[in-house]
Design a protein around this nucleic acid. Structure first.
Lengths: 248, 248
DNA sequence: CGAGCCCTTGAAACTCGTCAATGATCGTGG
DNA sequence: CCACGATCATTGACGAGTTTCAAGGGCTCG
């Protein structure tokens, strides 16, 4: 039995309340997790994708590589995050995935997912969660497209802070963030050098300190305002609506 | 009865074969469409989203606005394209949507979507289609993040060409594209001025001509290569797999 | 025929990338 | 326990791509 299922449950439970039985099922299904060493590749773009990844602990990401070797990170998967089950419907993965830190990852088969589908409540939570993930992807496009380097870095840090807070991985506006500056650059479409300069600037302005894989937010309001950050897209306080629609 | 449902059916049928009965249902459900004038706003970010939009004819887009007025276009919806039904599961729209040209748009209610859900085949097609749309969004992030202006414009034109071809809206490597250069700029995160310069360059290289709302591709292979375009993400030839998995 | 929107072009400024070198940190093995 | 190599952070100088500003011209529609 994996000790890490709780983050996943906590993540999903934000989108609809789960019964104890449903929580037990999620715990059971994620118990087949196994550890992956840092930089291990989970799947490459183009390969058949017959599993859904659940990151129980650690940090993974989805990304695409260009022929010249440049990389765009498309999404982070923190502890509690999972891939979109709809991915199973297509013949092959449209992007690659790797773990950035030593991580505990569970691989759910199509058969396992079918067990989940018998629980409409869980399906609802996963669907809403996946929809939120799409919202994050949209916000990233805005970020990379229309914000300055300074705003981008600030915005990303605001987002990560709230996402980690949602699963209980922050304390006093601080959290562990095991990303190199080069990886942040691949996320925000900035050079590692420029990420560094921007982080220095944030430090000098006493907004954020990012050192030794730890982020300390000194002035969240200031950071939010510098980023033009509006947390709505994270659906931090999504309520379970009265009407229990079951959409595709 | 709308005369435009065929593009929608054609679009979905690329992902699984639809029976005549299923096609009739889609035609019936889209018959409640109505025309929208150019620049009409379909929905604003934050408003309750209780309808799924199907663009039967014309051109719409999803976008986000920044407080300073800048706009990032997140997706185009050409004739035959639709929104993601999963959007209904969240309380409100996470981005705005408008029509860029006079368009024929159908608004499907949650009740209508529930009728569709009784047809697993249609659900499958829509799910696969939506998944492909997500793939397009990922590719756009790569585009904006890691490609030069020249590559971005070329890449976008390659994509639009294939998407329009899929629903029969091209002839001889030419198609109507009712976008202003400013709108292309809002899509690719470039200034309108630079879009113009890039289009001139493409014209001089005899790759593409874009004039009078018409795109004529003179050298598709050359354009594809200039863009570093790999059409796989469009799932142009997605086969209906043997196994009929029904994922969430 | 005029108004408005869009395209086109030029010049100057700025953000950010690249290149290069130096330090700091960490894990590993001698 | 220290030395070593590797990875990562830091800093400076320079260059390139793109933006902004500004102005003129063309097209379309009423």
């Amino acid at each position: 039995m994996s000790p890490h299922a709780s983050r996943w449950i906590r993540r999903l439970a934000r989108f609809t309340s789960l019964t104890l039985e449903e929580q037990r099922l999620l715990t059971e299904l994620s118990s087949s997790s196994r550890p992956f060493p840092a930089n291990d590749i989970l799947i490459k773009a183009g390969e058949p994708a017959d599993r859904v990844f659940v990151v129980l602990d650690g940090l993974a990401c989805r990304y695409k590589l260009l022929p010249d070797g440049r990389r765009q990170i498309l999404a982070y998967l923190f502890a509690g995050d999972m891939g979109d089950p709809r991915q199973l419907l297509l013949n092959c993965a449209d992007c690659s995935m790797c773990v950035l830190r030593p991580s505990e990852v569970s691989l759910l088969t199509a058969a396992t997912m079918q067990r989940l589908e018998r629980h409409p409540n869980i399906v609802l939570a996963i669907s809403r969660y996946s929809q939120m993930q799409q919202g994050i992807a949209s916000e990233w496009l805005v970020n990379v497209g229309h914000r300055t380097a300074f705003e981008r870095v600030s915005h990303l840090l605001c987002e990560i802070y709230l996402r980690l807070e949602a699963v209980g991985l922050t304390q006093d506006h601080a959290f562990e963030l095991a990303l190199t500056q080069a990886e942040i650059g691949d996320t925000l479409a900035l050079s590692a050098v420029h990420v560094n300069r921007t982080l220095m600037e944030l430090r000098q302005l006493k907004l954020v300190t990012f050192q030794n894989r730890r982020v300390q937010i000194h002035d969240y309001a200031g950071l939010q305002s510098a980023a033009g950050f509006d947390c709505q897209y994270l659906r931090a306080n999504e309520e379970a609506p009265v009407r229990a629609t079951t959409a595709t």
